[in-house]
Simulated assay, not measured.
Amino acid sequence: MAITVRLFAALREHVGHSKLELELAPNETVGSLFDRLFVDPALQGLRPSLLFAVNRDYVSHDHELRDGDEVAFIPPLGGGAPGPEGEPIARVFLSREPLNLSALIDCVRGPGRGGITTFTGTVRDHFEGRPVLHLDYEAYEEMVLPKMAELCEIIETRWPETSVAMAHRVGRLHIGDEAVHVAVGAPHRDAAFAACRFAIDELKATVPIFKKEIYEDGSQWKAQGGG
């Protein structure tokens, strides 16, 4: 059977390609495929925190592959664009250009929403005492917007009458640049603050965007949740 493998961050750098086309025997699982492709102990060290996706949905390591599948090995995570069916998702954004917080706030305004909270993540100039020169972000772009939209729906179910919007940059960002925005509108401030905190935490944990910190003396791929 024929499958496509998508690679990101440290795995992409190790292989030297972002995509592989492979022929597999029947009964291969996504976990066994990873173990065959990546025998390097350093890469096997990623295994416990790795996420697996098949056809842009997260799956367990024992998920059995089928002909035509697109597999993604996702290292630890830390204007409108097409959604899964080509329709615009008007409140989730992935951009190579500077983000617009005012436009995001407009997405969550409403006559019944008395409180709007926002979170902005910016590029800091150090990590554990090491000067940071800049960050490079990359993403599994076809999966990012659907996962962001799914997260918005989860939040709006958990906190009724809220509205959520979020945006993230990709590409090279310099010190002080804005990397991510989250905006939440709610009837009252308690729900707005709680939903906003949940949104940024889950975005970092579940949306496949990858961050590389560049230092004067080297570089390192970082888990999104650590920042």
Score class of each variant (00 low, 15 high):
Gly86Tyr: 06
His181Val: 02
Ala53Asn: 11
Gly78Cys: 13
Pro146Gly: 12
Gly185His: 03
Ser95Lys: 03
Leu11Ala: 04
His181Ser: 03
Ala165Thr: 06
Leu133Cys: 01
Leu173Met: 15
Arg66Met: 08
Gly185Cys: 06
Thr117Phe: 05
Leu99Arg: 10
His17Val: 08
His134Cys: 14
His134Gly: 01
Leu22Met: 06
Val30Asp: 08
Gly121Phe: 09
Phe193Tyr: 14
Ala149Asp: 15
Gly79Cys: 07
Ala195Glu: 01
Ser102Lys: 13
Arg113Cys: 02
Pro26Glu: 13
Asn55Trp: 05
Leu33Val: 07
Leu203Lys: 04
Val71Ile: 14
Arg113Lys: 14
Ile105Gly: 01
His168Cys: 09
Gly226Leu: 15
Ile74Ala: 09
Val207Tyr: 06
Leu133Asn: 02
Gly226Arg: 15
Met143Asp: 10
Lys211Phe: 02
Leu135Phe: 13
Glu156Ala: 07
Val144Pro: 08
Met1Gln: 11
Glu13Val: 08
His188Thr: 08
Val30Asn: 05
Ala42Trp: 00
Asp69Tyr: 00
Leu151Met: 14
Val39Ile: 12
Ala199Arg: 00
Gly31Arg: 07
Ser32Trp: 02
Gly79Val: 10
Glu87Phe: 08
Glu213Asn: 05
Pro48Ser: 10
Glu70Asn: 01
Leu43Asn: 09
Thr162Cys: 13
Thr157Val: 11
Gly171Ser: 02
Arg158Pro: 02
Asp217Glu: 04
Ala139Tyr: 05
Thr120Ala: 15
Ala103Asp: 15
Asp69Glu: 01
Pro187Trp: 07
Pro187Asp: 07
Phe8Leu: 05
Phe119Trp: 15
Arg130Thr: 05
Gln220Ala: 10
Leu94Met: 07
Phe210Cys: 07
Thr29Cys: 10
His14Cys: 01
Gly226Tyr: 13
Pro98Trp: 03
Gly115Arg: 10
Glu70Gly: 00
Val5Leu: 01
Val108His: 00
Arg6Met: 04
Ala192Arg: 07
Leu101Val: 08
Leu46Val: 09
Arg130Phe: 01
Leu101Gly: 06
Pro48Ala: 09
Tyr58Asn: 05
Lys212Thr: 07
Ala195Val: 07
Asp35Lys: 12
Tyr58Ser: 08
Pro88Gly: 03
Asp57Met: 05
Ala165Phe: 02
Val92Ile: 07
Met166Pro: 01
Arg172Cys: 04
Thr162Ile: 10
Ala199Ile: 04
Glu21Leu: 10
Glu156Thr: 09
Glu23Gln: 12
Ile154Leu: 11
Thr162Glu: 02
Ser163Phe: 00
Leu65Thr: 04
Ala205Glu: 10
His17Leu: 13
Pro75Met: 15
Gly129Asn: 03
Arg36Leu: 08
Ile155Val: 15
Leu50Gln: 08
Cys152Lys: 11
Met143Ala: 15
Phe193Met: 14
Thr122Asn: 10
Ile200Phe: 02
Glu153Asp: 14
His134Asp: 06
Pro76Phe: 14
Ile89Asp: 02
His134Trp: 09
Glu13Ala: 15
Leu24Ala: 05
Ala25Asp: 12
Val123Trp: 00
Arg169Lys: 11
Ala165Trp: 00
Phe119Met: 11
Gly68Phe: 00
Val71Pro: 01
Gly79Ser: 13
Glu213Val: 04
